[in-house]
């Protein structure tokens, strides 16, 4: 895009923002509103609605110095602090529904302030498991991803990308996008439970049946989307990696995904459109998450994030 249109001089040019910056967080001064994604604690005793999945135990987010026992403090790409998403040390097999605590999410709750059009997520991040055992733990990270939860005047939809890294210890290293399979019912989406609140297409991070080859009801593989990322040679060496996802909220379509220097064209692909939910018109929530593949904590370190729009 035309660099002359960029109005913000505080965003480093390792980002490629659209003209209007909704958020730039480098986590040097706090979490910037990124917090754990939790259910609504609106029931008796401030408990969450009954669900087939316990969503109250997703791992914590925190400011991190990325410190390791034999390497010391990595710090961040810029400064000392990054935002860390940490799972608990628990996982089900891939083809089962996610174990409580096997994921960690960070969400920033925003709303639209511009006409519909291009919206973009960018981050510099690194990923690794907890160095609690010897060897190289790359295969213990199941997946990570980033998406927008959007609601406009007609529809709610999840639009985003997931890097499927490992399935039951078998490295896949393949990008997927959020898009639910046609023909999946709301009940199948919720692992067969009748009366689950969510609709097909909503919350694909944990809903939608999973299959041993890495497919789920909620994700589609990106054509040619295999990619080897810079994991490094041991679990206490982390490299900062660039991710960009651009979507079009006017057309309700994907535009493209950039991971490192690779760009995947996603034009013409639609997310799954769902009838609007109450009280969230204009919602524009970026969400980042990480998933563990085994009984081991895995971490996603986010050095910085930019959310921008045209």
């Amino acid at each position: 895009m035309n660099a002359g249109l960029r109005p913000s001089h505080c965003v480093p040019n390792r980002f490629q923002p659209l003209p209007f910056i909704l958020a730039y967080d480098d986590f040097s001064g706090g979490t910037g509103g990124w917090l754990e994604l939790m259910p609504n604690f609106t029931k008796e005793g401030f408990k969450a609605r009954e669900s087939i999945l316990d969503k109250t135990r997703w791992g914590p987010t925190m400011l991190s110095t990325a410190s390791f026992g034999y390497m010391g403090t990595h710090g961040a790409m810029s400064g000392i602090y990054s935002l860390k998403l940490a799972t608990r040390p628990v996982a089900n097999r891939y083809e089962e529904m996610p174990a409580p605590g096997s994921m960690a999410h960070a969400i920033k709750r925003l709303s639209v302030f511009r006409p519909k059009g291009l919206v973009q997520f960018e981050m510099w991040y690194a990923y690794t498991p907890e160095q609690d055992r010897i060897g190289v733990g790359e295969k213990d990270i199941r997946a990570f991803g980033a998406s927008f939860d959007v609601q406009d005047d007609s529809y709610r939809y999840f639009i985003g990308a997931r890097f499927l890294n490992s399935v039951n210890g078998d490295l896949k290293r393949q990008w997927q996008i959020l898009k639910a399979d046609e023909g999946v019912t709301d009940q199948q989406w919720a692992y067969g439970r009748q009366g689950e609140w969510n609709k097909r297409g909503v919350d694909p991070m944990w809903y939608g049946r999973r299959y041993p080859d890495g497919r789920t009801d909620g994700y589609q593989f990106v054509s040619g989307g295999q990619q080897r990322l810079c994991y490094n040679e041991s679990d206490d060496k982390i490299n900062w990696i660039y991710l960009r996802l651009t979507v079009d909220t006017a057309r309700r379509e994907y535009v493209d995904l950039q991971s490192g220097a690779a760009v995947f064209d996603l034009r013409g692909i639609s997310p799954t459109l769902v009838q609007p939910y109450a009280r969230i018109e204009g919602l524009l929530n970026p969400v980042i998450w990480v998933e563990t593949d085994t009984d081991r904590r895995v971490f996603l370190f986010v050095d910085s994030v930019v959310i921008s729009c045209e």
């Binding site: 939790m38 604690f41 005793g45 109250t56 135990r57 410190s67 602090y81 940490a86």
Partner: peptide, 28 residues
């Protein structure tokens, strides 16, 4: 001043030995 409240367990049922998840606190 910088401030954070982290919720380490929510209505969690504890029995036997337990430990909360590790939480990074270097800035505080």
């Amino acid at each position: 001043r910088h401030f954070t409240t982290a919720v380490l367990e929510r209505h969690a049922s504890l029995a036997g030995d337990f430990a909360t998840e590790p939480y990074e606190t270097p800035w505080a």
